[in-house]
Write a protein that binds this DNA or RNA. Structure first.
Length: 467
RNA sequence: GCGCCUCUAGCUCAACGGCAGAGCAACGGACUCUUAAUCCGCAGGUUUCGGGUUCGAAUCCCGAGGGGCGCACCA
């Protein structure tokens, strides 16, 4: 390995140089001495002259070296694509008009022993791109742009929520019981306690315990883990925003969601009218609101609701191509019907409201109909982006719902919940009326970045290990 | 988990039953304003792996592995 320094005193970034010297004319040279650093993307040695394109995190700048003014010109002109260098010299613009740093002194900061792919086509092989993300990030500029957008999305979300008085908290990722969602958990083992622990599938129950503890407006942005298959829209670990607000109900969150998402789009993309994968997507509030029953009725042309006779619903579910389990009640049947008939046609943004109580074990019953709950999902670009509800506050009802879940689990549903006594004890201390929501950060970034594969928005997505 | 597609040099790709090739990168050389610089030269391979068919296999068949997409599950 070449001898490289321990630090380099950089005084300018590529991007800011272009702004600062926008007025500098072709062939003009300044007396301004700057020091830049980055990775050499391209070299164009030309005898007693040499050009190199240097990239740092702000952009690109050309290095201009000549035998006359550049120290160790001979070695400079032999730099390889991928080498990191620091260079000091005067800001100038070449006769052909390219803003450059005329290199007086320079130092190799790191040697690239491996290549960065074809200089025109880069690296397109998806496996290489995701297994060696560091290569991808240099070879494909867009890859880095998407991850930077992600960073800004999270940052803007935090800022907006904090401005609204929400407090960010961190709750456990290692759970004794995996609760708060319907999903298969990862299992791990704690040696000293000699007990199995589960990686969290949702922070929900802990966040509500904080509300019980007096945190009236809380949120958490964090990783959750679900032991499910991989797909272009599913990574086993993904990032969720969960948000809880005391004294509010789900209708407050309808407004909050459309404003949060539209606000994010206008702040980061300067518009609320997007194109996602070639299809127009207008995020401008207000978004359409429709109940699940309305959407099913609309899609099938037959009046349907949670009160439609069970046998009739079962018949329609079977007609839609799903084999109904005998244990399913009208709520589960309506949900199945919705997922098979209405949901595939939805593009959104649309709020799907009033879910069946049977499939919503943590949601509060609807004030007008005990078979429904006050819950909505926001479908945006054909995908569920947000799930929110008025929180179930009644400990007796919660126990009954947990027990129904436990029965389903005993009957073979390995995604069903179990009875969480810690949570029930907390509820018995009194949870005030509260609204809660969960939003998939990865999918939100996909939307704003207009990418179709979740792996694009995750720096190091899950892949099967190489053997 | 199931189905379909795919895997050739570091990268991007050809060759599709008959001698494994090109461009870029790398390496050596020429070149004082390049922009994917240009020109000359050189080198680079267990064609993912293991079997089979064939006079002959990167190519056809079977199996394994990786990846992609779809379905299932979900956010």
């Amino acid at each position: 390995m070449a001898d490289v320094p321990y630090r380099f005193e950089r005084t300018a970034e590529a991007g800011s140089l272009h702004e600062r010297y926008a007025e500098l004319g072709a062939g003009e040279e300044t007396d301004d001495d700057v020091a830049v650093a980055g990775r050499v993307m391209l070299t164009r040695p030309q005898g007693r002259l040499a050009f190199a394109t240097l990239r740092d995190s702000s952009g690109q700048i050309q290095l201009f070296a000549t035998e006359k003014v550049t120290a160790d010109f001979e070695t400079f002109s032999r730099l390889s694509q991928g080498d990191w260098v620091g260079a000091r010299g005067r800001v100038m613009r070449t006769r052909k008009g390219e803003l450059s740093v005329q290199v007086h002194e320079w130092v190799l900061l790191a040697e690239a022993r491996r290549s960065f792919g074809d200089k025109w086509k880069g690296v397109t092989d998806t496996e290489t791109r995701f297994r060696q993300r560091e290569v991808d990030l240099w070879a494909n500029e867009r890859a880095g742009e998407v991850l930077r957008l992600r960073s800004r999305v999270v940052s803007v979300l935090r800022r907006r929520l904090e401005a609204e008085g929400f407090v960010e908290v961190e709750t456990p990722m290692l759970h004794v019981l995996a609760g708060g969602a319907l999903a298969k958990p990862f299992v791990t083992h704690h040696n000293a306690l000699d007990t199995d622990l589960y990686l969290r599938i949702a922070p929900e129950l802990f966040l509500k315990r904080l509300v019980i503890g007096g945190f009236e407006k809380v949120f958490e942005i964090g990783r959750v883990f679900r032991n499910e298959g991989l797909s272009p829209r599913h990574n086993p670990e993904f990032t969720m925003l969960e948000l809880y607000q005391a004294y509010a109900d789900y209708s407050d969150f309808l407004v909050l969601v459309e404003q949060l998402v539209a606000g994010l789009a206008s702040e980061l993309l300067s518009t609320t009218v997007l194109t996602y994968q070639g299809r127009p997507l207008d995020l401008t509030p207000p978004w359409r609101r429709a109940t699940m029953a309305e959407l099913v009725t609309e899609a099938t042309g037959e009046e349907a609701s949670v009160h439609t006779p069970v046998d009739e619903l079962r018949r329609r579910v079977a007609a839609a191509g799903v084999d109904p389990d005998p244990s399913w009640g009208s709520g589960k049947l309506l949900l199945e019907l919705y997922e098979k008939t209405a949901e595939p046609q939805l593009w959104g943004p649309v709020f799907v409201t009033e879910f069946p109580a049977e499939v919503s074990p943590l949601s509060r019953r609807h004030r007008d109909d005990p078979d429904l709950v006050e819950r909505f999902e926001a479908v945006v670009a054909g995908r569920e982006l947000v799930n929110a509800f008025s929180e179930l506050v009644d400990p007796d009802d919660q126990r009954a719902r947990f027990e129904a879940q436990a029965a389903a689990k005993a009957a073979g549903d390995d995604e069903a919940m179990v009875v969480d006594e810690d949570y029930l004890r907390a509820l018995e201390l009194g949870l005030p009326p509260t609204a809660g929501l969960g939003l998939g950060i990865d999918r939100l970034v996909m939307l704003l970045a207009d990418v179709s594969n979740i792996r694009e928005v995750i720096a190091f997505p899950t892949l099967r290990p190489e053997r």
